[in-house]
Design a protein around this nucleic acid. Sequence first.
DNA 1: CAACTATATTCTTATTTGCATATATAGTAA
DNA 2: TTACTATATATGCAAATAAGAATATAGTTG
Lengths: 103, 103
Amino acid sequence: MADQINNLQADLCKTIAHPTRIQILELLRGGERCVCEIFPALEIDQPNASRHLSVLKKEGVVSSRKEGLKVIYRVNDQRIYQVLDLVTAILKEHWDSRNKALA
Amino acid sequence: MADQINNLQADLCKTIAHPTRIQILELLRGGERCVCEIFPALEIDQPNASRHLSVLKKEGVVSSRKEGLKVIYRVNDQRIYQVLDLVTAILKEHWDSRNKALA
DNA sequence: CAACTATATTCTTATTTGCATATATAGTAA
DNA sequence: TTACTATATATGCAAATAAGAATATAGTTG
């Protein structure tokens, strides 16, 4: 099928289509972080953070390396932030034009 | 909560995180289309197309207008295509680097 | 008004997803 | 080895999502 690419696109979108995973990515905007920093910053429990990180890793959005006991995650492709920023801009536009319609 | 924005971002990502909806958006890249053109082009049945269009409309990704019996859909913010193109580019990069690793 | 066409909605069922809890693994240190 | 710390995985359950079939609505035409 020629639309196989659409499945892959959808999978990547689905991977980032979760508030917690977006929060993780926003945290990683500041550079790599170990799990022990991530889950307290997001105020979620450790297994939950671990599962979301594994979702991101499975799709190739992040990678990890070990440093002693710690596992440190980083974003693979910085363009993921262009995606998030575009999404934010689209939302803002939508919000603004909706409010303009009400005014 | 400050992370309310993350919910909105996730909702928009979730809205486009479906192969059929991506196909609809790709079709609308060529300009507005009525439902009667969309569902045969995608080889899905009409209620299915209608439901996916309503998902896109509810999130504000597309709008519609009536013209006689027909309902014609259009994309609200062309930047959604920048998102899709970035996603494609990221996928391609991921694919390439994975194959390079195997070589 | 009745018949027809284009689109939308409802219902049911199957699948997927997310969370909480508990448990398991890996590395470190005594 | 034992105890401890950091991270990962398994289980069970509730909620969300998706597709097909059937039905409903809105607009058009005679």
